[in-house]
Simulated scan of single mutants.
Amino acid sequence: MLDNFYSPSYEVTPLTMAIIAQQDENGNTSACVLEEQEEFSAHYSPSKIIDNACKFFGSSLRGRQDGTRGICGITHKAPISIDPTSGMYFFPTTSPTNPECSWVAHSHIDQVNQGPGRQTKIVFKNRKTILLNVSFGSMLNQVQRTAQYRYLLDNRIKYLHRHNADVVAEPFA
């Protein structure tokens, strides 16, 4: 039953480090998924995989983007939380409507370095690296915006836990 709802063959987890856009020989967008221990291809665009992951947790990519806008005012290339309780915060490398948009998991990043030309090298905590066609300045901005969003959302969740610990839901009459 869950497979019918969550149609893609790949499920984003806390082990997902990045979902990288790639083009096949026919020009169709697919994804290279980087996990902590493995790497494989998926037959969906990175933004479609992210959207389905959001739907698995009760929202959508659009809903998560709207939530980001409401919390910290970011309107373009908004970072999202697929599931804040498991620390799954991702940011897009370009507009999510762009077929070249890749998604990077904030919690797995160890370093962001200048690459050749207008590229950026990301070093993950497990020492794997990727080279993305995104300027160094733009990538640093995305990492910082995601950190700000993560901080604000985590503080909201902590506040609710502290102030609602003794509240018990009441049944309908």
Rank of each mutant, 00 (worst) to 15 (best):
V167Q: 14
L152E: 12
G73P: 08
Q37G: 12
V112W: 01
K121M: 14
R145T: 00
V112H: 07
I20V: 13
P92A: 02
N113F: 08
L140F: 03
E36V: 15
S41K: 13
F124R: 08
H108Y: 15
N133Y: 11
K55H: 08
I20Y: 04
I130N: 03
I157A: 00
D110N: 11
T29I: 11
F5C: 05
K77A: 07
F57P: 00
S30D: 09
F56L: 09
S81M: 04
R118G: 15
V12R: 04
N155G: 06
P84R: 03
F136Y: 15
T29F: 00
P116H: 10
V112R: 05
V12W: 01
M17A: 15
G117W: 08
G73H: 08
D110W: 03
S9D: 11
S86F: 01
D166W: 11
S60R: 11
P84M: 06
I71W: 06
N155H: 15
H163K: 15
G58H: 02
A18Y: 05
Q22Y: 04
A31F: 06
S138K: 06
E11A: 15
C72Y: 02
A147R: 11
E38R: 09
G67N: 11
G137M: 00
E25N: 09
Q22A: 13
T29H: 10
R145N: 04
R150P: 02
A53L: 04
E11P: 02
G137T: 02
W103A: 05
L15C: 14
A165M: 12
C101I: 03
H163W: 12
L2D: 09
Q148W: 14
R118C: 10
N52C: 08
D110F: 07
S41H: 13
T129Q: 08
R156P: 03
N28K: 08
C54R: 07
